[in-house]
Every structure is written in structure tokens, then in C-alpha cells.
Nucleic acid binder design. Structure first.
Lengths: 171, 171
DNA sequence: AACCTTTTTAATATTGATTCTCATTTACAG
DNA sequence: CTGTAAATGAGAATCAATATTAAAAAGGTT
């Protein structure tokens, strides 16, 4: 129940399990069976922008005795290495992971909670302008989050510019 | 300890307490002394992008017996009315509130946790392109969050393109 | 003013994803 | 093989946010 709408070639920018493991090794981390399983699960569910719970469930299929703490720890390590990104989506209870660390936009549907990836040149110019105007040194250009209603959900519920008032207004 | 760097005219786009109260009234909500105090506290701390805890503390100065639940309820009401926006900032434990609901970017400093507002035309074109390319109906254009290091913090800690590796990589 | 209905308040209890603890196990260098 | 620093597992702890509830206040009506 989390099919993601992918715009453009599927998972074209996502890191593979091999790349994730290589990053761990390069950082001097030990290669454990658990980490291997977690990286494979990430790769498999890359298009879903999986949550910790999804990864945990997926890993348990092949590694039933793994603990949640290990999943949390490994994901945090991958995050620190910069090969994975956390998507902090407003009003979602769980953190989502994105294997695409190239500059792009994530569009989140407010109804089905699906997440789409969008690669556009505009992102870079936005970042550049923001940096120039604010004096900030912008760190990450991936995971720029927009909220809306996906095409499927628009069709399902009387399209029109539905859901203006009464909908949660947050970021 | 939360001075916010404002780029451009200070609080130029923020709603005033009067506007917030007017919105409550227009929605048929009752004007209570507590809500009045909360709106005033919001106005006063608008530039700080305050958290619930900050608002709660500020209101208690003039209204010592108010409960947290009332603050939460009122903020949620204001959010539903669309006159206030929640900023869900990665790795911050609390939700921040923004009285500026016009399309703009929020730049967050990773070191001092300050939040700057940036108004740029680029935002609109980014939204438009994202909508066209994804088929999504984009709902909110305020609260587009970027992460980086603010000018002050860059100066303080040997500027250079510091803090690339080892920093949290999330959104 | 007294009545009745609805909204709001506020103290407490609950929730639930994430983090912590620490004893045990494992990976890998020497 | 052995030592040791790192990683894991199991469960408990955390803590912001939400839900629950009874009591109080506001508003409208006659």
C-alpha cells in the first residue's frame, strides 16, 4: 500500500545496495550480515521511500531475529555517510528514507501519502539564489519537500480545486 | 536565544495578532481571553518562528493559569484556518510556527538553529514546474525548507566549506 | 433573568516512534 | 588464535504531542 509514482526512469538516481555497502566499508565500518540485509532491503524498496518499520519488516523476512535498534543504528550510519537521506514529512509519524541524494524535489500526496521524485534544473537555481540572498551556505539540495494531491487522488475525489479550506496547512 | 536573521523588511509578510483574531472570528470561533493572549504572543515572537513551548511560556507571563492543551488547540485551529504554518524541521524536536503564509523559503541554520525567511520569485516557478511535471496539485508554497549554515556561524567556525562530512544528512 | 445548548478550558492520562542501556556476541587486525 | 573495539539484541525509558474528561463559560431564546 505504498506504490510510489515515479516521474522519469524508475530509481534512476537511487543508490544500489552495493554502493551503500561500499560506503560503509570505505568509512571503516564492519561488514555484518545484518547490514547487508538492511542495504538489500533499502535497495528493494528504494522507490517506496520506505520507513524504518518497512525496512524492519522487509529485513525480518530473511533475518527474523534482527532487532529494531540495529535497523535504526544502520540507517543513522548511512545517513551520516550521506548515502541516504531522511525525509521529514509533516504529519507523517515515521521517517522516510530516500536513496536518491542528488538535488531533487519530493512531492508528497496528502491523501495517499505517496511520495514522488522530481528532478528539475530549477532546484539548483533556487538553491543558488537562496544562498546568495541569505548568505547561508546551503548544505543539502535533496529532499526539498512539496505537498499536494497526486493525480490519482484528484481523479478519485471530484478533482476541482478541492480541499482548500479545512485541510491541514503545514510544512 | 533565538534571534532570527531576517532578510528584507522585518516581519513584512507576517500576520498580526489582529488578523489572527479576525480569522478566528470569521470562522465563527469565539474570542476568548486565552486566544487573545496566544495571538499576541505569536505576533510578538513572529520573527523567532516560535515553538509551542515558547508560546506557552510567553502566554504564561500574562496568563499564568493557562494550560498547554489550550495552546495546542488554538495553534491547531489557527493552522486549520491557514493563517499560521507549521514548520517541521528535521532533527528539531519541536514544531515551529510561521505567521508568514505567503510563498517563501525558510532557511534553517544547522548550528544555531535559527530560521530565516526568504521571499523569491523562483519559488513560484519551481512550484509551477513541479505541478506541471508531476500532475500533482500543489497545496502549500510556504514553508519550503532549506538547510545550511548561517553567515554568523560560518564566521565563527573557520568559514571554509566546513561541515561537509559527518554532519547529519537529512531533510 | 433563567434556561438550555454548544463550545472551550484545563488537569490528567495515554500514546507510540525513537533512543537508550548494557550484557553479549562478532569482526577483523596482529 | 587471541585480544579488543565495534556491533548487536532485548527490553525499558523517553518525551513531545494527543486524547480524554469533567467542569466552566459563552451565546442565543423566550
Amino acid at each position: 500500500m505504498n506504490k510510489t509514482i515515479v516521474t522519469g526512469p524508475p530509481a534512476a538516481h537511487s543508490r544500489s545496495a552495493v554502493q551503500l555497502l561500499a560506503a560503509l566499508e570505505a568509512a571503516g565500518k564492519r561488514n555484518t550480515a545484518q547490514r547487508y540485509a538492511i542495504c538489500r532491503a533499502l535497495e528493494k524498496h528504494a522507490a517506496d521511500h520506505p520507513t524504518v518499520a518497512e525496512i524492519y519488516a522487509a529485513v525480518r523476512e530473511s533475518f527474523p531475529m534482527i532487532s529494531q535498534a540495529t535497523v535504526y543504528n544502520t540507517l543513522q550510519t548511512l545517513k551520516r555517510l550521506g548515502v541516504v537521506i531522511e525525509l521529514d514529512i509533516a504529519n507523517h509519524d515515521h521517517i522516510h528514507y530516500d536513496l536518491d541524494v542528488t538535488p531533487h524535489v519530493n512531492v508528497v500526496c496528502r491523501h495517499c501519502e505517496n511520495i514522488a521524485d522530481l528532478h528539475m534544473r530549477t532546484v539548483t537555481s533556487l538553491i543558488d539564489e537562496a544562498a546568495a540572498r541569505s548568505g547561508f551556505q546551503i548544505q543539502r539540495t535533496a529532499g526539498l519537500i512539496l505537498y499536494g494531491v497526486c493525480p490519482d487522488c484528484r481523479r478519485r475525489r471530484g478533482d476541482g480545486r478541492a480541499a482548500q479550506e479545512g485541510e491541514p496547512q503545514d510544512a
